[in-house]
């Protein structure tokens, strides 16, 4: 028995003692939406900088900011801009940050492929369907638009802890965390894909990448925001319409936040610049829409100059304001 225990102990000690110590560690955490981009960048960065270890966690945008503002991590993945309460927390602990937009993500409105009536939907209709007052009242397709079938509508959407939900709520009902609650929600978008693909009466929303990978099982509904300054009529979410800002209001920039203190370390600065230099190539590889080259240039300048503060907080969903404009204004 003593021998068995000793063997167990020794093997454990061996397992944890191997490896060397002359490496540096960069910690990233936060949104699961931004995760694939940061993972791709980390993987690529490691190839040219083998001495730098990067860890990436997933704890949601909110969870990431909590750790970031406590000074636990160097980089926060965020699928929405920082909130005033989070800014407050960062200020309290003296964490200054550089906000960097890294890509676009579109939110797709999706139905079952056999659905032949929902050829487009307006933002007004989406509001009517998703606002808190709709709970228990808007139950049928015909309640959304006269002429649509008198059949039940089954709603699917992102869970309330996700940045996708936050953004959808802001863009459609114009209020933070304010939608009806009687819908099937999941933090795992594949569960939503599965649910909608098996339900002819379903309507749901999730990140555009999940639609792209399941095109044959789902149908996307073009969205009409009723404004003409970004293209008339209903717009289908594609890489092009998300990027040029015509697919509104359901396309949004996603971010990383770098700690100013961490940027004093040369390896973190190198990673920040590398992130933006490689993004045009890596972002589409993992299923997102890259920013315009100009935006990456401006963002790189922000990192190099370590310009702190948020340009996007409170206006992430503004229609008609391009990321380049926001960054350009911020640089002046």
């Amino acid at each position: 028995m003593a021998r068995t225990l000793a063997t167990l102990g020794l093997s454990a000690a061996f397992l944890v003692s191997c490896g060397s110590k002359d490496t540096t560690l960069i910690k990233a955490d936060g949104s699961s939406t931004v995760y694939p981009i940061t993972e791709a960048v980390a993987e690529q960065f490691k190839k040219s900088n083998p001495k730098v270890n990067i860890t990436v966690g997933i704890s949601g945008t909110g969870g990431g900011f909590k750790k970031f503002c406590a000074g636990e991590i160097d980089l926060a993945d965020a699928s929405r801009p920082i909130k005033p309460t989070e800014e407050e927390a960062c200020k309290k602990s003296g964490v200054e940050y550089i906000e960097v937009p890294v890509a676009y993500d579109g939110i797709a409105i999706v139905v079952h492929p056999s659905n032949d009536w929902a050829k487009s939907i307006t933002t007004e209709e989406l509001k009517k369907l998703w606002e808190p007052e709709a709970q228990g009242k808007i139950k049928k397709w015909s309640d959304v638009r006269a002429g649509w079938p008198d059949k039940e509508i089954h709603l699917f959407g992102a869970g309330v802890d996700s940045g996708t939900y936050d953004y959808f709520s802001e863009a459609i009902t114009k209020k933070e965390k304010s939608t009806r609650g009687d819908y099937t929600s999941s933090e795992d978008d594949n569960v939503l894909v599965q649910g909608i693909a098996n339900d002819p009466l379903a309507l749901g929303f999730f990140g555009i990448a999940y639609f792209e990978e399941n095109k044959e099982r789902l149908k996307v509904v073009p969205v009409d925001d009723g404004k003409s300054d970004n293209g008339d009529g209903p717009i289908t979410p594609t890489a092009t319409t998300v990027r040029d800002g015509t697919y509104q209001p359901l396309s949004r920039p996603i971010f990383i936040y770098l700690s100013k203190k961490s940027l004093e370390r040369p390896e973190v600065m190198a990673l920040g610049k590398f992130y933006l230099a490689e993004a045009p190539k890596l972002v589409p590889e993992v299923g997102y829409v890259p920013l315009q080259p100009k935006a990456y240039e401006l963002a790189t300048a922000r990192v190099e100059k370590k310009l702190t503060g948020s340009l996007f907080a409170g206006k992430g969903g503004q229609v008609g304001v391009s990321i380049e404009d926001v960054l350009e204004k911020g640089a002046q």
Partner: peptide
């Protein structure tokens, strides 16, 4: 953590584990 591209070099090292890696892959598009 979810993405760790190195092996633990001590008991205080950050780490990942099989169920977490699986969970992450399942939720990818």
């Amino acid at each position: 953590l979810t993405y760790v591209a190195f092996l633990p070099d001590g008991v205080t090292s950050p780490f990942t584990a099989l169920p977490i890696q699986i969970f992450n892959w399942v939720s990818r598009p």
